[in-house]
């Protein structure tokens, strides 16, 4: 409503009216399910996570070590040469503080998301993950060192969530 218009003609419709079927509408829940083949590169990554290792891919032509691993170098357009583990430590490339959950509701404890350049991978290569053991997000700094906190081996299932989070870490 603006200052000039105090009332629109007609009857207001609420979300509840739609849910209650007072307004004609169509509801359909599609049955849409996939089971993607992980393939050569992603299978290595998944197996690596189970073993507590982050696997990268190396291209000898451009000398990059790429994370996440891929079967081909997208810069040189050639098959990669080797799968090698990188370290589970790194530095914060960028971060954000997410106050909103996946369903758009407000969350009390914000999720700290970060892109982490992993040690042993080429510059600007790493992992998107969440940060933990940080009491005040204002402590997060660009270039801050962090280290993966892994789930116990018997709980890992070949997923990025086999790393619980990355926590602040002092070298040496």
């Amino acid at each position: 409503m603006s200052e000039k218009i105090k009332h629109f003609p007609g009857e207001a419709v609420s979300g509840r009216d739609i849910r209650d079927g007072k307004v004609p509408c169509i509801k359909h829940r599609p049955n849409v399910k996939y089971l993607w083949s992980a393939g050569v590169a992603m299978s290595r990554f998944i197996e690596g996570m189970k073993a507590g290792k982050i696997i990268g891919a190396k291209c000898v032509k451009c000398k990059r070590i790429m994370v996440p691993p891929r079967a081909f170098c997208e810069e040189c357009f050639r098959p990669i040469d080797e799968y090698i583990p990188v370290k589970d430590t790194g530095t914060i490339n960028t971060y954000s503080v997410s106050y909103v959950a996946g369903d758009a509701s407000r969350i009390k404890e914000p999720i700290l998301v970060a892109v982490i350049d992993l040690d042993g991978a080429s510059k600007g290569m790493g992992i998107l993950h969440i940060l933990g053991e940080i009491s005040d997000w204002k402590q997060i700094k660009f270039g801050m060192k962090v280290k993966a906190v892994w789930k116990p081996a018997n709980e890992r299932e070949g997923s990025v969530t086999d790393i619980k989070y990355f926590k602040p870490f002092k070298e040496g």
Partner: peptide, 19 residues
């Protein structure tokens, strides 16, 4: 079926052959 490759790897192979 093609459980051995991901869709990306499948596309990479076709592209490599075409180039």
């Amino acid at each position: 079926v093609s459980p051995d490759v991901s869709y990306k790897e499948l596309m990479f192979e076709a592209a490599t052959r075409a180039y």
